[in-house]
Amino acid sequence: MLPRPDRAHLARALPRLALGLVLCGTGIAAMVLADLGLGPWDVLHQGLSDRTGIPIGTVTIGVGFLVLLAWVPLRERVGIGTLANVVVIGLVVDGWLAVVDAPSSVAVRVPLVALGPVLFGVGSGLYIGAALGPGPRDGLMTGLARRGAPTWSVRAGLELTALAVGAALGGTVGVGTVWFALGIGPLVHLALRHLSLDPPPGAGAPGGRVSAR
């Protein structure tokens, strides 16, 4: 586990954590509703959802827990934010998709796909900036990178693998996928500059090209 944050840090960080994860889930739901392409991991989640009939948010939760299992041999440290990430984002995605119908008009779908990564980027800035633990997929990335491979190559390998498998399963690849891939790094970086808290004692400062996943 990560070092236990003090109460003062938790009082400031938990609201940011909650809001950040809700924004991340809302951004993903917006892209699913737009049906113009998803981020690499969500292409995988949607492909699995289409094949199994399980809601995409629930699949996201299941994949998150499976990824956490891969942390065990990598000796990654789980934080409050890590566990919240696994559960909350998927619940928010399923919640939005249960109450909002997919639009048929391109005039609505294009703004949705444009807005999705922005919401996800801001949510990531709040979530990561709370310094309560990395998302499961980013923890996998950093754990593998410590074995000697450059971080960028590990990240690219994981995301391209998720994208390829998801596309083969029927997940939606499109302009939204390109926008997410190109935009999420700068968006998260900008959000972190303005939304990060000082980390609790014993925790590293947030940063780098990461997302809330």
Rank of each mutant, 00 (worst) to 15 (best):
A131L: 01
L126Y: 04
V118Q: 08
M141G: 00
A156V: 13
V113W: 10
F120M: 15
R147T: 13
R147Y: 04
A107G: 12
R109P: 11
L132N: 05
M141T: 06
L132V: 01
R109F: 08
A131V: 01
R147G: 03
L119Y: 11
L126E: 02
V122F: 15
V122Q: 07
P150V: 06
W152T: 12
V122P: 06
E159Y: 07
A149F: 08
W152E: 12
P134W: 04
L144M: 13
M141D: 03
L112N: 08
A130Y: 02
G129M: 02
A149Y: 07
V108G: 04
A149L: 15
L119D: 13
R155V: 05
L119T: 13
V110F: 14
V110A: 14
A107N: 03
G135W: 05
L140G: 01
R155M: 06
P111E: 09
I128D: 07
L112M: 14
A107F: 13
G116S: 09
R155N: 09
A145K: 11
T142L: 15
L126P: 01
G116E: 07
L144P: 01
A131F: 04
G121L: 08
V154G: 07
T142W: 14
M141L: 15
T151C: 00
R155T: 06
V110Y: 14
L115Y: 09
S124H: 10
G157F: 03
L112F: 12
V154H: 08
G125F: 02
G143C: 11
T142D: 03
R109N: 08
W152Y: 11
P136M: 00
G123A: 11
L132S: 03
E159K: 08
L144E: 02
L144A: 06
V108M: 14
P134T: 03
G123S: 09
R155Y: 05
S153L: 14
G139Y: 00
R147C: 05
P136V: 00
L119A: 13
G143T: 12
G143Y: 11
S124Q: 05
G133Y: 01
L132C: 03
R137Y: 10
G143D: 11
L126H: 01
V118E: 06
V154L: 06
S153W: 04
L132A: 06
L144R: 01
L144D: 03
L126K: 02
G133D: 04
L132E: 03
E159S: 07
A107H: 12
G123E: 10
V118S: 10
G157M: 04
A107Y: 10
G123Q: 06
R109Y: 12
G148F: 12
A107S: 15
A131M: 04
G129R: 05
Y127Q: 05
P117A: 10
G116Y: 13
G157K: 04
V118L: 14
R146D: 15
A107C: 00
P117R: 08
R137D: 01
V113L: 05
F120Y: 10
V122M: 12
A149D: 05
G157S: 03
L112H: 11
V122T: 14
E159C: 05
W152K: 14
A130Q: 03
G139D: 00
V113I: 12
A131D: 08
P134Y: 06
G148D: 12
R137W: 13
A130M: 01
P111L: 10
P111G: 10
W152V: 14
A145I: 01
A156I: 12
V118T: 07
